[in-house]
């Protein structure tokens, strides 16, 4: 069965203690589609992305990923999910190459140092692979987050504030990543920057 990839978010509610951040969000995306989740600070954009990636439990509702006739929950679909976010932290005591080699190993990806260097080159970190992350600037750290997220060619890419801390070349990188993801899978972008709404086929506006 060659069913296209589908992401089904059904009635997802998010609460922090007594405070309800998100009430009953539902949508469905197919491979090739990009959704922009827009809203002010505190509207639940980042939390929604974390729920989609299986990093946070919703107060209500489900997130289901269907592919080739198989239904997977996010926690079962690690190899399909990629996540870039300001609260994604990698190992500061390791170098960029060591970080990528580690995440490749736990994901079961066979790759050489040259492969990882090529990936770093693609995100604009060519020649900086042997530097410890502790020595990276915020922009370089953000680029490495992209390398981490793209390492396994995820079919669902969740980008939270995708251009934050980026210069013009960094923004071009994000545009390139989103364009390539269209041929490959689903992209979900959480942003409060109106300029980034142009990336989406659909816009989900969250009110505070």
């Amino acid at each position: 069965m060659n069913e296209p990839l589908r992401l089904i978010v059904n009635d997802v509610a998010i609460e922090y203690g007594a405070r309800r951040v998100l009430a009953g969000v539902s949508f469905e995306l197919c491979a090739g589609e990009t959704l922009v989740v827009a809203g002010a600070n505190g509207s639940g954009k980042s939390s929604l992305l974390r729920v989609i990636c299986g990093l946070q439990r919703p107060a209500r509702g489900t997130v289901v990923i269907r592919t080739n006739g198989t239904v997977l929950r996010p926690s079962e679909a690690l190899h399909l999910l990629g996540w870039v976010a300001p609260d994604l932290y990698l190992y500061r005591e390791l170098t960029a190459l060591e970080n990528l080699a580690f995440f490749a190993a736990v994901r079961g990806i066979r790759c050489t140092r040259a492969d990882l260097e090529a990936l770093l080159d693609r995100v604009g970190l060519g020649g900086r692979g042997d530097d410890l992350l502790a020595a990276y600037s915020s922009g370089m750290t953000q680029r490495l987050r992209y390398a981490y997220a793209l390492l396994h060619r995820p079919r669902i890419l969740a980008l939270d504030e995708p251009t934050v801390t980026f210069d013009a070349r960094g923004v071009a990188l994000v545009e390139q990543v989103i364009a390539r993801q269209r041929d490959h899978g689903i992209t979900i972008i959480a942003t409060n920057d109106p300029r980034e709404e142009r990336f989406g086929d659909y816009i989900l506006r969250l009110a505070q």
């Binding site: 190899h79 079961g108 079919r155 490959h184 086929d201 969250l206 009110a207």
Partner: peptide, 30 residues
């Protein structure tokens, strides 16, 4: 708090093979 989804354009879908999971012991060793 009500979400609104507005379509902007239609996109063609594509599909690629699902990557396999890492062997457990190799991942644990990593």
């Amino acid at each position: 708090m009500d979400p609104h989804i507005s379509p902007q354009s239609a996109i063609e879908t594509s599909s690629t093979a699902m990557p396999s999971e890492a062997p457990l012991l190799m991942a644990a060793w990593a």
